[in-house]
Amino acid sequence: MFTDRIKEDRAFAAAKPGLLDAWLSGWRDSRFARIVAEAGQRLLSPGKSLTVRLSQGKYLSLSGTRYCRVECRRGAVWVTATGDGRDRVLTPGQRVTLTHGGKVIISGRGESSEAAVRWD
């Protein structure tokens, strides 16, 4: 049994990859393939989401997000993000999508504010 295993290892070590194998291994290791794989993973994987109730003076801070969507469900919600340059106040039914990476701060404006947040 042991000698058969050694013969198999030698036979596989002597085998040379064909042109198709060499091309596929080079393509698999390329930057383009990694970008396509990451995009497919983001597209097919569920993002993180939560619904949060914020009263006056309470806030939610998200850091390291590449994509963030905030929707106001009730009351008014104040949203600011690094790299965006402006603050937004959302009322029920309004939403904002932030695509800059960085920190996002969501704060309640009033006693009973509710926001739905989805990020990646």
Results as ranks from 00 to 15, higher is better:
2 F>W: 14
3 T>V: 14
3 T>G: 13
4 D>W: 14
5 R>M: 13
7 K>D: 06
9 D>P: 15
10 R>M: 10
11 A>N: 11
11 A>S: 10
11 A>L: 09
11 A>K: 07
12 F>A: 10
14 A>S: 06
15 A>T: 10
16 K>P: 02
18 G>E: 06
19 L>K: 12
21 D>C: 07
21 D>M: 11
22 A>I: 08
25 S>R: 14
26 G>K: 12
27 W>C: 13
29 D>P: 05
31 R>G: 10
33 A>M: 10
37 A>L: 07
38 E>G: 08
39 A>H: 08
42 R>D: 03
43 L>H: 09
44 L>K: 04
45 S>I: 07
47 G>N: 03
47 G>R: 05
47 G>W: 05
49 S>Q: 11
50 L>Q: 10
52 V>K: 01
53 R>K: 12
56 Q>L: 10
57 G>F: 08
58 K>G: 08
59 Y>C: 11
60 L>W: 06
62 L>K: 05
63 S>A: 11
64 G>H: 04
66 R>I: 13
69 R>V: 15
69 R>N: 04
73 R>C: 10
74 R>E: 15
74 R>C: 12
75 G>M: 02
75 G>H: 02
78 W>V: 03
78 W>E: 11
82 T>C: 05
82 T>Q: 07
83 G>D: 00
83 G>S: 00
84 D>F: 14
85 G>P: 07
86 R>C: 05
86 R>H: 10
87 D>S: 05
87 D>A: 05
88 R>N: 13
88 R>Y: 15
89 V>L: 14
90 L>G: 00
91 T>D: 14
91 T>L: 15
92 P>Q: 02
92 P>G: 02
94 Q>P: 02
95 R>V: 13
97 T>N: 03
97 T>D: 09
99 T>N: 03
102 G>K: 00
103 K>E: 11
103 K>C: 06
103 K>G: 03
104 V>I: 05
104 V>P: 00
104 V>N: 01
105 I>P: 01
106 I>Q: 01
106 I>C: 01
107 S>C: 09
107 S>R: 05
108 G>Y: 03
108 G>T: 02
109 R>D: 14
109 R>A: 13
110 G>M: 03
114 E>G: 04
114 E>Q: 04
116 A>H: 06
116 A>E: 12
116 A>K: 07
119 W>E: 06
119 W>H: 04
120 D>R: 03
120 D>M: 09
120 D>C: 05
